[in-house]
Nucleic acid binder design. Structure first.
Lengths: 226, 226
DNA sequence: ACCTGAACACCGTTCAAGT
DNA sequence: ACCTGAACACCGTTCAAGT
């Protein structure tokens, strides 16, 4: 009789339920994002995946933003900090491109990254690398200190925009609408838009981004603080 | 008897329910955001405010992102496009500061603006103004065409970051944590971060932003395409 | 200290049916 | 064509109560 007594709901897939931990939660969250996209990484889905209730997660993460920051920090481990180029400027562009690449590969997170900055070791290493390259290039300290933020901002914002477009068909149409609006601008009221024409949205994203990085690097080096 | 018959649920506050329209919906959404913050501007709350059901809104707006873009476009009417400065560069910085100011005043929307670009007349006028000022400053057309995006990106991303911090106490703590992480970086593994010290987060936001605008303007003017 | 069931107070979007 | 009731399929976060 005892052997036939109803057992509590079996958990067949996860034979030994592991103890919760901050690391385990973030691990599972990243894996879930990779398979289902960030929009499916909700506290409830994540808890389900970990075979517990949503309330349990709040012992380890403060809120959803906090979770996103931790996920980004983990992903930042994949950024290539020592590319092989000779010129410091080219190396810096490549580091930033690598950072953007990581964000591009995880569409939803890029959008979240605009608002939340991680502060773990990988993020620190990225900032250190950018500062070292600006230093190598002879950029004055004060300008480098302020420029690193702008560089990361451009990279993150570009990924966020691209990510939104890639996410679904509606956004692609919104982007096309924007181009149509630019193209349809009357030469009378918008002479400069008309004059530049297709050039406003020309070029492959990578080319535009590489140019943007070079422009901000040059501007950082050439613009004194007050 | 007929006079005592139960009337359908009275709508005392809005004596004559006005017909729905895209403009009316966006108007109400902006008013609601101004009083309660963007997080309260949900399709359901908005429908309630307009004395209808949420499904009715979908006749006029495609989805939440679309609504946000329309709200931003409306707000862009407040951007000062013709500031009084003499120097073209100074005027451009002031236009961009005005744009950022509008975003700062509406915290939630700034975060949404990173992903969705409006495409109405106010947005077009802003782009035209920036292009005209770059032209006046002798910036080559191709560089101006690509630079305008970077300029708007820096402005929007800065507002989004600031907005998140302003929104609630948790975010302020997250920002403090980031500063603590930077300050606590070991001089051994992070020599440049240690060398720059407090300078990494020095300066009033307005000063940093004005410098960032000048740096990007200079970089745009001084960086050839390929 | 760590964990959780259950509740609180909500969401966006769709669609068949009405006018 | 425009509008909507009702449903579908979910949310984040808190908190009292357990171990």
């Amino acid at each position: 009789m005892t052997s036939n007594a109803p057992r509590p709901r079996s958990r067949r897939e996860r034979p030994a339920k592991p103890a919760l931990s901050h690391e385990g939660i973030v691990d599972t969250a990243v894996r879930l994002m990779e398979s289902d996209g960030l929009q499916r990484v909700t506290m409830r889905r994540l808890a389900q995946e970990l075979d517990t209730g949503p309330a349990s997660l709040y012992v380890y993460v403060a809120n959803t933003d906090d979770l996103h920051a931790a996920m980004l920090e983990r992903l930042l481990g994949a950024v290539e900090l020592t590319p092989p180029a000779e010129d410091w400027r080219e190396r810096l562009v490549q580091v930033l491109a690598s950072y953007t690449h990581v964000l591009f590969a995880h569409p939803g997170l890029a959008r979240a990254a605009v608002a939340v900055r991680p502060n773990g070791p990988h993020y620190l290493a990225l900032v250190e690398t950018i500062l070292a390259l600006l230093h190598e290039g002879g950029v004055p300290d004060g300008q480098a200190a302020w420029g690193v933020d702008v560089l990361l901002q451009v990279a993150t914002a570009t990924a966020a925009e691209h990510a939104t477009r890639a996410a679904d068909g509606t956004s692609v149409r919104a982007h096309d609408d924007a181009i149509a609006a630019l193209r349809g601008a009357s030469a009378d009221r918008h002479p400069r838009i008309a004059a530049l024409g297709d050039d406003l949205y020309s070029g492959a994203p990578e080319q535009r981004l590489a140019w943007a990085f070079r422009a901000v690097i040059n501007g950082t080096g050439g613009t004194p603080r007050t």
